[in-house]
Design a binder for these strands. Structure first.
Length: 602
DNA sequence: TTCCAGACTTGGGTCCAGTGGA
DNA sequence: TCCACTGGACCCAAGTCTGGAA
């Protein structure tokens, strides 16, 4: 219980689907077991262990390694200065990474070329290095063509060959794609070790083009329970270490060489462990609803504080709440220059006492996560505006706007307001609240299912816009829109024709009434109605797609919108859940689908 | 108090299998 | 049957946040 009287939910598995102590092998033979670990289970509040233990038993097969490098055939050559050249095996492998990327724009970038060439030289043999002095003299085109042909060949494989490949894939997924956690057979999210290749960061990443080295078993740490069958490393090889830490959820890990970050093999979102965590996340966000008024009141008071730190905190929190900005942790230097709230610099905002007929406008323009641009003009309260003016005084453009605060400080303060509260909770809270509000505004009982879905997508879109989830317009967008328009035109012509036929049938019926003529009129009426419905559906599709051109709905749907809101909405308005969530999403949100009634309120 | 690493969530891009229309 | 298109699985980078060491 926190000081606001809110009990942070704890989660217990009501009834176990599998008995404990069952072995992985016995389950691997049965692919059909346990589609959803939540189905038929009772979720209830209770006492989970509070010592940070995530599981009692964990057994798995270890990660699946990518295939070894297959040397190029003799008739495919790399050229240096116009002359064919046989590279050492290691250098050849890295050359193929570059060759495969030749069509990408970024291979033309200076940083990419420089990083690649430096790392490539490192794996070259002395002989290779003696010859190869300049990247500009390297010709990878034959290698590139070889891989293009290879992928073409794969496309043109016979049905049987494709089937065999698919079966092999399924076999591997069966063997490596599942683990046994506390007796439950759970899907693993990413059971493959990342293959070697060239690092491609997002945006202007200073490390783009660097070599991501091959990971061997000796680099991999295995995490499983003591009494489980320890996964076998590839024959003749060893693991870096085998540990039995049940306070973490990962199954295997290694450190990648480019950014020195740890990579993990973890469970699929449909798993019990991830599901519980997700539920917990939405419960914390829901509980913010009870506190948000007092928190808002508090940060508004902070705008007038004499202490600069408090004042900055008040304004930063206001941005995080109102604009759903990310916290904005400090970043390492050798990454793309992106920012969030706390790391905003003076150059990222402009102040306008009046703009487009509005007063006290702040213009934001910065690159956020993944180098996605955030551009927004927002009228703010006068006190916020004045405070920002003070924060910017005597500062250079590249100075921090909020120089007195950090994300750690902000989150500490937030945790004082409410247990479990951190900056990102506001994003979840505001996203889910927006969805719920929009759904209630946009949905009407008498709508068709298609109209309701359009309303849902519009509500979802409002959230995506709030969270700045943008995407590049699909490459085939214009073409597919044109196709849709053509379909609409055709449908209109069909309606015209059908109406003519109806008129004719009515006339005939009037002149010589009979059962047959009456039936014909009904048939024609039905045809017109059906066509008009089809037209309406197509027009809705156009609207939906147009509005969705550069907005990505998936991210908010998967990460920010409490699924119980969607499930309740589906139940209330008789929309099949399949129209809102695809199979994977239904698996991830099985807990919500199981537990939510039509009257759920976030 | 600061720094840093570890653990986990969030995120857009890519690619390919499946689908539906010609 | 073929082909174009698209949804969704997969990939892996890039965030957030916490806890412990210095």
């Amino acid at each position: 219980m926190n000081r606001f009287g809110y009990a942070v939910c704890q989660f217990v598995y009501g009834s176990l689907r599998f008995s404990r102590g069952i072995s992985l092998d016995s389950h691997l033979s049965n692919a059909r077991v346990a589609n959803s670990p939540f189905r038929n289970l009772r979720w209830e509040e209770g006492n989970n262990s509070n010592d940070g233990q995530k599981w009692q038993t964990l057994e798995h097969r270890g990660p699946l390694f990518p295939p070894e490098y297959e040397p190029l055939p003799n008739n495919v050559s790399f050229y240096y200065g116009g002359e064919p050249m046989k590279l050492s095996l290691a250098a050849e492998e890295v050359a193929t990474f570059y060759a495969k990327m030749l069509e990408h724009e970024y291979t033309s970038k200076e940083a990419f070329q420089k990083n690649f060439f430096t790392d490539w030289k490192e794996v070259m043999s002395d002989d290779d290095r003696k010859t190869i002095k300049k990247l500009s003299k390297c010709d990878f085109s034959e290698l590139h063509k070889y891989f293009v042909n290879k992928s073409e060949e794969k496309k043109n494989m016979s049905k049987q060959e494709k089937q065999a490949l698919k079966e092999e894939g399924s076999r591997l997924t069966e063997e490596y794609g599942y683990c046994l956690l506390d007796g439950h057979r759970e899907k693993i999210g990413n059971f493959r070790v990342e293959p070697p290749g060239l690092f491609r960061g997002r945006g202007e990443h200073p490390k783009m083009g660097k070599l991501k080295k091959r990971i061997h078993s000796v680099d991999v740490i295995i995490n499983c329970s003591k009494d489980s069958k320890i996964p076998a490393p590839p024959s003749g090889k060893k693991w870096k270490r085998v540990q039995h830490d049940n306070t973490v959820t990962w199954l295997a890990s290694w450190v990648e060489n480019v950014q020195k970050h740890t990579k993990y093999i973890m469970l699929n979102p449909s798993s019990k462990l991830k599901g519980e965590k997700d539920w917990q996340k939405y419960e914390v966000a829901r509980s913010l609803k009870l506190e948000v008024d007092s928190i808002r009141h508090q940060y508004q008071q902070d705008w007038s504080s004499r202490e600069m730190k408090t004042r900055q905190r008040g304004v930063a929190l206001y941005f995080i709440d109102k604009l759903a900005l990310r916290a904005g942790n400090e970043k390492e230097d050798d990454t793309a220059d992106t920012v969030g709230c706390c790391s905003l610099r003076v150059e990222h905002i402009s102040l306008h006492e009046s703009l487009d007929g509005q007063e006290w406008v702040v213009e934001f323009d910065f690159l956020g996560k993944d180098s996605i641009r955030y551009y927004n003009k927002v009228p703010v309260e006068k006190r916020v505006f004045k405070s920002l003016k003070i924060f910017m005084e005597n500062k250079d453009p590249e100075d921090d706007l909020f120089d007195r605060i950090s994300t750690t400080y902000l989150n500490k303060k937030l945790n004082e307001y409410m247990t479990g509260l951190s900056a990102k909770v506001f994003r979840t809270f505001n996203a889910s609240t927006t969805l719920q509000d929009q759904l209630s505004k946009l949905t009407k009982e008498d709508m068709t299912v298609e109209e309701k879905i359009l309303s849902y997508n519009r509500a979802n879109r409002a959230v995506a816009i709030l969270c700045n989830h943008q995407r590049a317009a699909p490459k085939t967008f214009e073409k597919s829109m044109q196709l849709l328009q053509e379909k609409i035109q055709k449908k209109k012509e069909q309606i015209e024709q059908a109406k003519k036929e109806l008129k004719k049938a009515k006339k005939a019926h009037k002149e010589h009434p009979s059962d047959r003529s009456k039936k014909l009129v009904e048939q024609k009426e039905n045809a017109v109605r059906r066509l008009e419905e089809q037209l309406k559906k197509l027009e809705l599709q156009v609207t939906d797609r147009e509005e969705n051109k550069v907005i990505a709905l998936g991210t908010s749907k998967l990460n920010y919108l409490d699924p119980r809101i969607s499930v309740a909405w589906c139940k209330k308005y008789n929309v099949p859940i399949e129209k809102i969530y695809n199979k994977t999403q239904r698996e991830k949100f099985a807990w919500a689908i199981d537990m939510t009634d039509a009257d759920f309120q976030f």
